[in-house]
Design a protein around this nucleic acid. Structure first.
Length: 201
DNA sequence: TGATGGATTACA
DNA sequence: GTAATCCATCAA
């Protein structure tokens, strides 16, 4: 049992501020998104059940789930559910705190704040790809490691709708980030609650 | 705003 | 087999 075990939307906020290290670069996580399991969450890859691709999401808490999307991008997730239950937290953005020079060479042309600002960028800066699929993030021998939870001022915690999720699941505020962090990805930093009756101009 | 890119999955 | 989708990024 590790601190990564639990419902994805509960573990998500605990991941903020924690450090993720891989291949010579370390980032401090500033933005994450939670995804639940079969039938509970239309936005989750595991929503329709276990498939060859999503098998790792059904593994034990603390494993890394790497997803290849849009034909060119990797996205990193942390599995949080018990064996057999799909639950994971997508790592959306972070701040590079170690290995800055190495990260810059992997992201030519990007400014420092953009090095890991976005899920695919984060993977790129850390050189994460399918080879990290299923590794134990808490094992000190792993090529990808997650540090201990880092306390932060809870007043800086923000929650909002997730990116790329439509339908009923869109209203579930399972995207978490730290207010004031410049490295949070640029999509709707603070979506105002839509009041019924308010229409477009 | 639009082009891109390849794997994955649901169907027939 | 074929078609639709997908947790995005970069260039303009």
């Amino acid at each position: 049992m590790s601190w990564l075990a639990g419902a994805a939307h509960e573990v998500g906020p605990h991941l903020l501020g924690a450090r993720l290290s891989a291949h010579g670069v370390t980032v401090r996580l500033t933005e994450v998104e939670a995804y639940a399991g079969v039938g509970e969450d239309p936005g989750s890859h595991a929503h329709r059940g276990r498939t060859p691709r999503t098998g790792v999401m059904f593994g034990r808490a603390g494993l890394a789930y790497l997803s290849f999307t849009y034909g060119m991008h990797w996205c990193a997730n942390v599995v949080t559910g018990p064996e057999g239950v799909a639950a994971a937290v997508l790592l959306r953005a972070g701040e590079v705190v170690e290995g800055l020079d190495l990260a810059r060479t992997r992201r030519p042309g990007a400014t420092d704040r953009d090095l890991a600002r976005g899920p695919a960028r984060l993977c790129r800066a850390l050189a994460l790809d399918g080879s990290a699929l299923g590794v134990d993030l808490l094992d000190s021998a792993s090529p990808v490691r997650l540090g201990p939870p880092a306390p932060y001022d809870e007043e800086r915690l923000r929650a909002g709708p997730r990116v790329g999720v439509r339908g009923d699941g869109a209203s579930t505020p399972w995207r978490f980030w730290l207010e004031g962090e410049p490295t949070v990805s640029p999509y709707r930093a603070a979506p105002p609650p839509r009041t019924p009756g308010a229409s477009h101009p």
